[in-house]
Each structure stands twice: as C-alpha cells, then as structure tokens.
Design a protein around this nucleic acid. Structure first.
Lengths: 213, 213
DNA sequence: TGTAAACTGCGAACCACGTTCACGGTTTTA
DNA sequence: TAAAACCGTGAACGTGGTTCGCAGTTTACA
C-alpha cells in the first residue's frame, strides 16, 4: 500500500533511523553494470545485492519490487542522452541525429530493448526526451497524433536495428526454396548497400513518410 | 543434446512405446487459451499441464523447454493469418491490408507482442507471411534490404498500436508543464482525428517513406 | 533527559517456477 | 518371449522474487 505512486514520486527514505548504507543511485548503477556485462536475466536481486556486499532482502528498503529497479535502470540510461544541445536547422536532420544518439545508447546498453516498452518505464528523463523531440517538431505543421506516432516508431526503429545487431546468424537457415520462393530469391542476391547509413536512410524515410503530407 | 535442431524440425515422437495421451497441437492450444485469458505470465508449465489433466514434468515428453512452447504458440498464432488470397492491385493497399490483418491478430492474442521478437520464434508460418509480403513487394523496384526493413517495421507498427490499445491510462499523469513545455502543449489540445484509420494512415506513411525514392 | 517510534541491515523462510529424475507400466521390435 | 524404447507420475532440485522477525541505531517528543 506504500507504492500507489510510481517510484519517481516516492521519497527515498524517512526522517528517523540510521543513515542508509546505500542509495537508489548506487543500486541502479550496480544493476546497470551487471546488465551491461551479463545481460538482463543476470540482474537478480541477489546478484545486485551481492555486488553491493549486502543481502537480497535489504534492497526492499530502497525499492518495492524488481520492476521498480528496471524502471529506474531504464530512466537512468535514457538520461545519458542529455544534455540536449540547441535546435537549429532542419527538423528532419535534427530528429535523425536524435535517433542516432538513441541507437548509440542502445548499443551501449543492449538490455534497453527488453525493458523500454513497458508503460511503467516512462520516467522523467524519458519525458524530457519526448519533450525534446516535440520541440524539434514544433515548427512542423502536422497533427499531434502523427508526431506521437513518429516518435514512437523512431524508437521502434532504434530497437529494431539494435536487436538485429545483437542477434546471431540469420534465422533463415535451411529453408525450403519451393515453399518460400520470394524469400529464397531475396536471400539469393546479396544486394546490400553500405550497411553504414542503412539506419539513417530507414529513419529518414520513415519520418518523411509519417510527417509529410 | 536431442534438440540441436529447432523444434519445427524435430519429430514429435519415436516408434516404440505406448501411444501418447496428448500432442503438441493440444498442448499449444491449451497454452494459447491460457495466454488469451490470463496473459503470458500465467502460461506456466504447471498451468498448461493442469489444463490437460496431467503432470508438469510430462510435458517434457513433447517439448524440451518452455521456450519451445512459446515458439510453437507464436508460429501457430501467426498461422491464423493464412490462407492468403490472390494478389491484385496496388502493392501499398495490399501491404496495408496485410498489416491490418496482423493488427487484428495481435488484438486477438495480445501476448504476441511479448514473444514475437525473439529470433527463435521465426517458424514456418512466419516465413510464409514474410514470403507473402515479399511477393506483394516483388513488382516494386527497391533494394532488398529496404524491403526487409519495411516488413520488420510494419510488424513494429502493429506491435505499437496493439500495445497502446492494451495499455491503461496514459503515462503522462501529473507531469510538470514547466519542465516539459512542448509535451504539455501537445497534450493540451486534443486534436485527435478519427482514431479509426490512424493505423492505416501511419502504416501508409511509413511504407511510402521507406519504399519510395 | 529518557522513552517510544521509526528506521536500519541481516538472515532465514516461503512460494512459484523451470527442469530433472527414478520408477512402474505399456507397446513395439527382434 | 525378452529386450529396448517409450509413456505418465510424483517427488525433488535449484533459482528466483518477496516477506518477515530480529537486534541494533537514530530521531522526535514529552
């Protein structure tokens, strides 16, 4: 009953009692270090507590659930996108640059793709990012709903490319060419252009298609 | 060591011994029923086994892990998209129609969004769907990589809309207007056009932007 | 100043989960 | 007919999130 509010609006500690040995920031940092090194499944309460030299149950003095921890991790990582420098020039260039920064962030923290979609993970830094994108789009005359979709799908594109970079060999091993003729034909000719600016090109096309009449 | 192959290439049973009381199809149907009713976390081995009136350990005669079960569930659900009727007319209209069918599928099985991204979930029906999309795009003169991205992002759009329909109230409750001015302004004027064809419009814009020079 | 309330870290415990295993019974192969 | 392969069962293992009681510590208040 103590957490009717999301964790960002909850105070870290009360007034009485001894000073805590740790802090939310310290716990979140340890959890992110584990996730960066060994992946999200390795982020167990016991592992995080062990990295801090404490017991698992003690973490619940600082958070009320593992989901809270994931939310804090997410928003802290998103905070690495700041500070945002000033807006100038074309909105499309600017938004693509924001998307590329987001992609870099996801490459640094591959676990982000697995936690970022949960609604509870929208924290203050995520709001700042969202607000920033809307600011870039402000001079554009497009319906608000279209701008919302565009930003959401930009993140979707980031997740897509981040995941495809982290995945192993393609899942099309040993498929039947007669059953899937078009797929076989497409895989036959490796007409990949420069893999470098594939992301830029895709994101540009997406945004232009979504925000241009 | 028995499952070096993905589960679709593994035989269901051996030659000797008594006839099995169940089948993979029956198990998958029970699991899907549970997921549809109570969500993906409710799909535990024990719950699926209980619905079949058997013990949890017995399921491992048919599958080798819970991930296998999720893979089978995914591909079976994707199979509901078939049969595909003949191609005719504009490629864009056709692809949007495929996307809408995909969205209907995700509304019927909201848990799909949480399992569809895993690489191991690409089964024969998913390959058929992919091949079908490529067939629709065949007359189009665009690089293969662009077509792949477009199809992947189409699925991303479906997941986005499916999730936003399933999510509760918006996560922008009680935000600080001074900290996020653009966001507050955007939320102030409810300029939502008809929520009906929002998906169609977004998907059209996305595909056109991605596949048009 | 003293006492009660609120807080701290700690460890044991609970429960659910995925998975394994030995067992007795059943069907096929040789 | 005997051996081999398979079946379902139920108990068990290990791990995970979470709860709880305990003893010690700090603050608020009379």
């Amino acid at each position: 009953m103590a957490d009717a509010q999301p964790i960002w609006n909850r105070p870290a500690r009360g007034a009485r009692g001894p000073a805590p040995s740790h802090s939310r920031a310290e716990i979140v940092a340890a959890a992110i270090a584990i996730a960066d090194a060994d992946g999200l499944p390795a982020v167990s309460m016991r592992a995080v507590a062990a990295k801090l030299g404490t017991a698992a149950g003690g973490l619940y003095r600082y958070l009320s659930s593992r989901d809270d921890l994931l939310d804090l991790m997410t928003d802290r990582a998103v905070g690495e996108l700041e500070p945002y420098h000033d807006t100038s020039g074309d909105w499309l260039d600017h938004l693509v640059a924001l998307g590329r920064a987001q992609l870099d962030l996801h490459r640094r923290h591959p676990w982000l793709a697995d936690v970022i979609q949960r609604p509870s993970a929208v924290g203050p830094h995520a709001l700042s990012f969202f607000d920033r994108c809307l600011g870039v789009l402000a001079p554009l005359d497009a319906p608000t709903s279209a701008k919302f979709e565009a930003i959401a799908l930009m993140t979707g594109t980031v997740v897509l490319f981040s995941r495809s970079a982290a995945t192993g060999p393609n899942p099309f091993a040993g498929l039947d060419p007669t059953a899937h003729p078009h797929l076989a034909a497409a895989l036959a000719n490796p007409s990949d252009p420069g893999r470098q600016d594939l992301f830029d090109h895709a994101l540009r096309g997406l945004l232009r298609g979504l925000l241009t009449p």
